[in-house]
């Protein structure tokens, strides 16, 4: 890790929660490398640990949840930071957008106050500059009549507008890394599209890295450079978006991609992955995916495959990834 001082580097991130049925590993040994200016997609179904991964990165997991592992940002260890240092980092260099625009804004403060608050905490701007910057930010995220809307309260905004306000707050201090937790899930598709374009524009403008958590593969395809697929708290496959979409090497990825409807194609039954994700407190032995996997063998039931590179920039955690890839090519 010594040479890598740029971007975000995560090694062996674990988040554990105690439950009556034993400890549940919501995140289990996640490794991530995100370069400056890169948009990284983290994909998986509900409960696969995507959101907890982001929260763990930001040290937002509340006790009694426990987080272990290494998180290095620009060469500095986020996990070992003192509160004072962490405060400067959070909201300053690293910003986070929450999933729920309905609850992530403070209902009793006008949005102007909430935007200017971030500027006050992380910049040297004076009062006048902060006002100007707040107005500019609302303009950037595409809120019409920004000057008038600054003094309104969150309940006066629609869901899509609130999401934009949240993005404006997150971007206030020009972060170098944006952690976006399903920022478009609560929105309808037209607004979603606008927000995604906006994020890409902002990436170019501020040259920031983005970690984008979603379960929407269409969003990943249109937005991200690289992606990782999570299942039961582990990363099962990573690679560039185009490669993963072209030849998925993990049966779970293959299943995910197969369950996306294709426009213009012949009408057929939509494929789905049989079964449900396992409970985290009672993961099956061996590969966590084997009960739902059509490629599973005795080896999969006995041993857990490690995430291993098989080509430049690509890794997969499956004993039979070559068979999976061939099946994809035949199909």
């Amino acid at each position: 890790m010594s040479a890598k001082t740029d971007g975000l580097h995560v090694r062996g991130l674990c988040a554990t929660f105690e439950t009556p049925r034993g400890p549940a590993r919501a995140v289990d040994g996640v490794d991530l490398d995100i370069a400056p200016g890169e948009v990284f997609g983290l994909v998986g179904e509900s409960g696969s640990g995507k959101s907890v991964t982001l929260r763990a990165l930001m040290r937002l997991v509340h006790p009694p949840g426990r987080v272990e592992g290494n998180v290095a940002w620009q060469g500095r260890d986020l996990m070992a930071m003192k509160p004072e240092e962490l405060r400067r980092m959070r909201g300053g260099e690293i910003a986070m957008i929450f999933q729920e625009p309905m609850t992530a804004l403070n209902p009793v403060l006008p949005v102007r106050v909430q935007i200017e608050e971030n500027l006050r905490a992380h910049t040297d701007m004076n009062r006048r500059e902060r006002r100007a910057r707040a107005l500019e930010l609302l303009d950037i995220v595409g809120i019409p009549a920004a000057a008038r809307r600054l003094d309104e309260y969150p309940h006066q905004f629609s869901g899509g507008m609130r999401q934009r306000v949240m993005i404006a707050i997150a971007l206030a201090s020009s972060p170098k890394l944006l952690l976006a937790d399903e920022p478009t899930t609560a929105l309808d598709v037209t607004i979603q599209d606008q927000i995604l374009k906006l994020l890409l524009d902002l990436r170019d403008e501020f040259s920031m890295s983005v970690v984008f958590v979603t379960h929407d593969l269409g969003v990943v395809a249109s937005l991200c450079d690289r992606m990782a697929v999570m299942y039961a708290g582990r990363i099962v496959e990573t690679g560039t978006v185009s490669e993963v979409f072209a030849t998925p090497h993990h049966p779970y990825t293959r299943g995910l991609l197969g369950s996306v409807p294709h426009g213009g194609a012949e009408r057929t039954m939509l494929a789905s992955i049989e079964g449900t994700p396992p409970g985290l407190a009672s993961l099956p032995a061996g590969c966590a995916f084997h009960p739902r996997c059509e490629f599973a063998t005795d080896e999969c039931r006995r041993e857990r495959p490690a995430l291993e590179p098989f080509a430049p920039g690509r890794s997969v955690a499956c004993f039979h990834h070559e068979r999976v890839a061939r099946a994809e090519e035949l199909a």
Partner: peptide, 27 residues
């Protein structure tokens, strides 16, 4: 304090005192 806006305040790098008195208490 378990709601998203409290986490949002924390993740924005605000001091605990600010999160408590400015954000949580009025609510």
């Amino acid at each position: 304090k378990r709601l998203d806006y409290a986490d949002a305040g924390r993740v924005m790098g605000y001091r605990p005192s600010r999160v408590v008195f400015r954000h949580l208490l009025p609510n």
